[in-house]
Write a protein that binds this DNA or RNA. Structure first.
Lengths: 168, 168
DNA sequence: CTTGACCCTGTAGCGACTACAGGGTGTGCA
DNA sequence: TGCACACCCTGTAGTCGCTACAGGGTCAAG
């Protein structure tokens, strides 16, 4: 099976498949004399596994770990449980942040219904006032915590006063 | 006020302030003879406005637009309302996707409680089976829709069969 | 006259792709 | 045989919103 067929079967973009191979998530397929990739059923399974995990919001690093656990049958599955627990925590936190955010946005939207000049727009006024006024203690929805880095988490918490503890 | 002081006052990183200036979100400040940036109260307000909008999950492009509307007092505020409505829709969609995702993850976590060998881990088995089995019609939480591109949206929808319409 | 805290520019990196340039291959049809 | 056209290859650069340096300059205090 050539890469195009694999792409069709999985619904994954051709370039993404090549990317996964480059990132060592997908094992390197056999090559024809002319360098074309040839995939078998096993690699179809591998890719589907990756895509399913991605659809559960896991990072490629997590998936790499999970695949390693999967390969090592003797490995204690506690690590797997931990990984899923962390994923749940992450997703829960994000969902909660978005819920709060939506409420704030709806409240903001409520400030202006009619169409009039920007100078009188309640939304704009509210935004400007909010920026000047009280610290907004909002729980960093998807802004500052950029894509779930982990190594600099405490570091960012120290610096990024705004979303963590409001303004000083 | 030098950049460090502005950073402290707003809780924004110094490098981020310079980044906003580079991106033309923040107007260029006056410079001392030695090239140091000097900020005034107006620019403090500007930055706070940006940070507040960011905390509401808006993209820098959206904030740029909003700032332009703010500057143009005659401008009809319908565009502002539209922008906020789109933002609400975006956030709502993401929140909903994350809620579903959390449910899926919790169900998955339920497959394995005890600690045993990975070969027998219910989570891993479930993941593998799910990958092989039914199409997972999940609503692209934060995976494929990368950071809210808009120009190639229909394009991506055509290609990315998995999360849009399950596997064919 | 040095120390050390601050400032500057420029560039590269993150994650998970996506897009394209510039080329090669393979099949079908006239 | 020639050619069109769909597919494949590699490599590089772009996306977004920062973050982290390297390698230097400035300025006030001791």
């Amino acid at each position: 099976m050539l890469i195009g067929e694999l792409a069709k079967k999985t619904g994954c973009d051709v370039e993404t498949i090549r990317y996964y191979e480059r990132e060592r998530l997908l094992s390197a397929p056999q090559r024809s004399a002319s360098g074309y990739r040839h995939y078998n059923a096993e690699q179809l399974g591998e890719l589907n596994f990756i895509l399913h995990c991605r659809s559960l919001g896991m990072s490629l690093a997590d998936i790499r770990n999970l695949a390693a656990f999967k390969a090592d049958h003797e490995h204690d599955c506690e690590d797997i449980n931990l990984l899923i627990d962390q994923q749940i925590a992450k997703v829960h936190q994000q969902a909660e942040a978005l819920r709060l955010l939506e409420q704030q946005l709806l409240a903001l939207r409520d400030k202006c219904h009619d169409s009039h000049a920007a100078a009188d727009c309640g939304i704009l006024q509210t935004l400007v006032e909010a920026a000047e006024g009280e610290p907004c203690v909002c729980h960093t929805p998807f802004g500052q915590d950029n894509h779930g880095h982990s190594h600099d988490h405490d570091h960012a918490a120290k610096k990024n006063g705004r979303t963590q503890k409001g303004r000083p």
